[in-house]
Simulated assay, not measured.
Amino acid sequence: MGSFLFLFLKGVAMGAANVIPGVSGGTIAFVTGIYEEFIDSLKSFDLEALKLASRFKIKELWQHLNLSFLIPLFLGVGISLISLGKLLDWLFIHYPVFVWSFFFGLILASVYYVSKNIRRRTVSVFIAFALGTIAALVLAFLKPAEENPANYYIALCGVVAVCSMILPGLSGSFVLILMGNYQLVMLQAVPNLDIAIILPFAIGGGIGFIILSRVISYLLHHFHDVTLSTLTGFILGSLVVIWPWKSEVYLQNDSGGLILKKGEKIVQGYEWFAPAFDNSGTFIAIGLGVLGVVSVALLEMTAESK
Rank of each mutant, 00 (worst) to 15 (best):
F4H: 04
P244D: 13
Y113I: 06
G105S: 05
V290S: 05
S217M: 13
V123F: 12
L52K: 12
P200V: 06
L142I: 03
N117Y: 14
E248P: 12
L88S: 01
G208L: 10
F98Y: 03
L298W: 10
M186N: 07
V23L: 05
F98I: 00
S68K: 06
N151W: 12
Y250N: 11
T232Y: 03
S115G: 11
N181S: 08
M179S: 05
Y182E: 03
N192E: 15
N279D: 09
E264H: 06
A109S: 10
L170T: 10
W62G: 14
F141H: 13
K57E: 11
L212G: 11
T32W: 00
V19N: 01
E264L: 12
I177R: 05
I210Y: 09
F209W: 08
Q188M: 03
R120Y: 14
I216L: 06
S101T: 10
I20L: 13
I259T: 01
Q252T: 15
V160F: 08
A274K: 09
L184Q: 02
L199D: 05
G206K: 08
N151T: 12
L75C: 09
I71N: 07
L219C: 03
F56R: 13
I93W: 12
I177Q: 02
N279C: 04
S83A: 05
I198P: 01
V99I: 10
S124W: 13
G292M: 00
I284L: 09
N66R: 02
H94S: 11
R119N: 08
I58T: 11
D40C: 09
R120N: 15
A189C: 06
I286Q: 00
V19Y: 00
G22Q: 02
I154F: 03
P275Y: 02
P21E: 01
Y153I: 08
I127S: 11
M14S: 04
T133K: 15
I259H: 02
T133I: 14
F104C: 11
F92D: 04
L258N: 11
